[in-house]
Simulated scan of single mutants.
Amino acid sequence: MRLNIKDPQARIDHGIDWSAYLAGQVIVASAWSVAPVEAGGMAVEANAFEDQRSSVRLGGGIAGHVYRLTNRVTLSDGQVDERSIGFRVEER
């Protein structure tokens, strides 16, 4: 899992290009989650998806904390897959 840096006041967009993993399928559903869930922690503000890409807008986070952002997608043939990305929140 790679680690990205995010400022607590930043609202950033992040995306995953799933095209290399789809084998002719398309994304029909996408859900994002952040762990740990905590007051003032990093949170999903908005999300969207297209046939081969999913995206999310993140806000918040507590400086010094590390969060795992997970995207779980359902494909047109019913398969389910997920990818996670780490974020460390730091004042910039």
Rank of each mutant, 00 (worst) to 15 (best):
residue 51 D to C: 00
residue 51 D to A: 15
residue 52 Q to R: 06
residue 53 R to T: 12
residue 53 R to L: 09
residue 54 S to Y: 02
residue 54 S to E: 03
residue 55 S to T: 12
residue 55 S to E: 15
residue 56 V to P: 04
residue 57 R to T: 14
residue 58 L to K: 15
residue 59 G to C: 02
residue 59 G to W: 02
residue 60 G to M: 13
residue 60 G to V: 09
residue 60 G to P: 03
residue 62 I to Y: 00
residue 62 I to S: 01
residue 62 I to E: 01
residue 62 I to R: 06
residue 62 I to Q: 02
residue 63 A to W: 01
residue 63 A to L: 02
residue 64 G to F: 03
residue 64 G to W: 01
residue 64 G to N: 06
residue 64 G to Y: 03
residue 65 H to R: 13
residue 66 V to Q: 10
residue 66 V to A: 10
residue 67 Y to W: 07
residue 67 Y to H: 11
residue 68 R to V: 07
residue 68 R to K: 10
residue 69 L to P: 04
residue 70 T to Y: 04
residue 70 T to V: 06
residue 70 T to C: 02
residue 70 T to L: 04
residue 71 N to L: 00
residue 72 R to F: 02
residue 72 R to S: 11
residue 72 R to Q: 14
residue 73 V to M: 01
residue 73 V to R: 01
residue 73 V to D: 03
residue 75 L to V: 02
residue 75 L to Q: 06
residue 75 L to D: 03
residue 75 L to T: 09
residue 76 S to W: 12
residue 76 S to D: 12
residue 76 S to I: 03
residue 76 S to L: 10
residue 77 D to H: 07
residue 77 D to V: 06
residue 77 D to A: 12
residue 78 G to M: 09
residue 78 G to D: 07
residue 79 Q to T: 10
residue 79 Q to M: 07
residue 80 V to L: 03
residue 80 V to H: 07
residue 80 V to M: 14
residue 81 D to T: 04
residue 81 D to V: 03
residue 82 E to A: 14
residue 82 E to V: 02
residue 82 E to H: 15
residue 83 R to C: 02
residue 83 R to H: 11
residue 83 R to S: 04
residue 84 S to W: 15
residue 85 I to F: 09
residue 86 G to Q: 12
residue 86 G to S: 15
residue 87 F to C: 05
residue 87 F to P: 01
residue 87 F to I: 11
residue 88 R to C: 00
residue 88 R to W: 00
residue 89 V to M: 01
residue 89 V to C: 02
residue 89 V to N: 00
residue 89 V to I: 15
residue 89 V to W: 01
residue 91 E to C: 04
